[in-house]
């Protein structure tokens, strides 16, 4: 009986994963603004692939050889998704693909992503004298 419940769980995880992967790609194709397109495939990379990897873990458990190393891929994707999203957002901002320019920052002089190279790297005095 518990085997039936496990089968249903595997099937549900597979269907949810496939649906969210599809939703992410449809959003990537259909949305208008570049930043909105940046937001769409995060569903595919977290819930979509996460559910499919969870289905793989459950399937390995059901077939009698349990293995949990798919959780490694989930952890890796969850750690690297914000970093790559940050880089792509930075490309959108700097190449002027954003819909509106950034508003003026409240307290600082300028946004950190638009700071010049000399300002965002505090230089050591002897290195500066060398250069």
């Amino acid at each position: 009986m518990s085997h039936g419940i496990l089968d249903i769980a595997i099937a549900a995880a597979l269907v949810i994963g496939g649906l969210f992967t599809l939703v992410g790609s449809i959003g990537l194709l259909k949305l208008e603004a570049p930043m909105a397109r940046l937001h769409a495939p995060t569903k595919a990379s977290t819930l979509g692939v996460g559910s499919i990897l969870l289905a793989s873990v459950l399937y390995a458990y059901a077939s009698g050889a349990p293995s949990y190393h798919e959780l490694l891929i989930i952890a890796f994707l969850f750690m690297t998704a914000p970093v790559s999203a940050y880089f792509i957002g930075k490309v959108h901002i700097h190449l002027g693909q954003n819909r509106k320019p950034l508003p003026k920052p409240a307290r600082d002089r300028l946004w950190a992503t638009e700071a010049k190279r000399e300002e965002d790297t505090p230089s050591v005095p002897e290195m500066k004298a060398d250069a």
Binding site: T21, P41, A44, V49, I52, A60, A65, L77, F87, L95
Partner: peptide, 30 residues
């Protein structure tokens, strides 16, 4: 523009991971 192409490449690799895991489930191998 190029930002959309980078994003599409990133999504492509993530979908490829999902497809390979599905192949692994279908073949019942690790």
């Amino acid at each position: 523009r190029s930002g959309d192409r980078i994003l599409a490449l990133d999504t492509l690799s993530i979908n490829a991971v999902a497809l390979i895991i599905l192949v692994g489930i279908a073949g019942a191998t690790q």
